[in-house]
Amino acid sequence: MSVDLDKYFARIGWGGERGPTLGTLRGLQHAHVLGIPFENLDVVVGAVPSLELADLEAKLVLGSRGGYCFEHNTLFADVLEQLGFGVTRLTGRVRVGARPGEVRPRTHLVLAVRVPGSDGVPHLVDVGFGSPDALLEPLPMIPGVVREGRGRRHRLVVEEPDGPAPVRVLQAWSGGGWLDLVAFTLAPTLAIDIKVANWYVATHPRSPFRRLFVQRTLPAGHLLLDGATLTRTAADGTATVEELGGDAEIAALLEAEFGIAPPPGTRAAR
């Protein structure tokens, strides 16, 4: 099956064009990031999120829920393909918070999207990073070119350019310098490998997603709930932090400010 486009567009508040143009891609990516929150509540209550399109539609489109990278970008890839875009699924290694020299597994899904009739340069698209430094618009996959969009600045750099599989690193301008977000190659990832990575992230005892981790990008800021710690970041980068009192307060916050109806058993940590 495929996702019902009318229902999806209603969910993200999109009333614009549906042709496979760069303008459509830009608008849809921004609307999706603002319209559907990033969350890992299924993992917190002991479940592995389904990547079947019917389940993603029921959860992210029709339900008051969000998801993490595998869910968001699987859903978005189907929408883009229905509209006529060319989509290649890529897996990458998240570098935010990594120690120097640490090599993490490929546990993040991104998309390389081609716009029909364009100059042939694919665009990096990611609606499932869930960070105040994440992409809000497509990034042309041209190394070294800095792109500013929706108040954020990004670029791609290439590591090991002469190797058999050059590594591309998405960077964001943050705190006065370039911050590595995710590293990936252009080798397409098969659906079965995405399912394995999804299972690993949801079940590994040391996975960071086994604690509550919820984010929402707002037109004028960003919300992050990490365990019982809530961080509100304004558009100018200033942040306020508060500690929540318990599971009842967390559940109320999820509904009131993140637009999420939490499943039974939701709590700050497992």
Rank of each mutant, 00 (worst) to 15 (best):
M1Q: 15
S2D: 14
V3R: 02
V3F: 03
D4H: 15
D4E: 15
L5W: 02
D6N: 14
K7Y: 13
F9H: 13
P20N: 05
T21A: 07
T21F: 02
L22D: 06
L22T: 01
T24V: 10
R26P: 00
G27I: 03
G27A: 13
H30L: 15
V33T: 02
I36Y: 00
P37M: 09
F38Y: 15
E39R: 07
E39I: 07
V45A: 02
A47L: 15
A47G: 07
A47F: 11
S50A: 14
A54Q: 11
D55P: 07
K59G: 06
K59S: 05
K59D: 01
L60R: 08
L62D: 14
L62F: 06
R65T: 06
G67H: 03
F70L: 08
E71L: 10
E71P: 01
E71D: 10
H72R: 02
N73M: 10
N73H: 09
L75H: 01
F76I: 03
V79M: 08
L80I: 06
L80H: 01
L83N: 09
L90G: 00
L90N: 03
L90I: 14
G92L: 01
V94L: 05
V96P: 04
A98H: 09
A98K: 12
G101A: 12
V103W: 08
L109I: 07
L109H: 04
R114K: 13
S118H: 13
S118D: 15
V125N: 05
D133K: 13
L136P: 00
L136V: 00
P140T: 05
P143D: 11
P143M: 01
P143I: 02
V146W: 04
E148M: 06
R155S: 01
P161L: 13
P161W: 01
P161I: 12
P161Q: 10
G163M: 04
P166D: 11
V167K: 08
R168N: 12
V169M: 05
V169H: 02
Q171F: 03
W173D: 08
G175S: 09
G176W: 12
G176N: 12
L179E: 12
V182M: 04
T185C: 04
T185L: 03
L190Q: 14
A191E: 15
I192Q: 13
I194T: 11
A197V: 10
Y200G: 09
V201K: 05
A202V: 09
A202T: 09
T203W: 02
P205K: 09
S207P: 14
S207I: 09
P208I: 01
P208T: 04
R211N: 15
L212T: 05
F213Q: 14
Q215H: 15
R216E: 00
L218M: 12
L218C: 07
P219L: 08
P219Y: 02
P219W: 03
A228N: 14
R232H: 14
T233S: 15
A234P: 00
A234T: 11
D236G: 06
G237Q: 00
T238P: 06
T240H: 12
E242A: 08
G245P: 11
G245R: 12
A248P: 12
A251H: 06
A252M: 10
A252Y: 04
L254Q: 00
A256L: 11
E257V: 10
F258I: 11
F258V: 10
G259R: 06
I260T: 08
P262F: 09
P262D: 05
P263Y: 05
G265R: 11
G265F: 10
T266Y: 11
A269M: 14
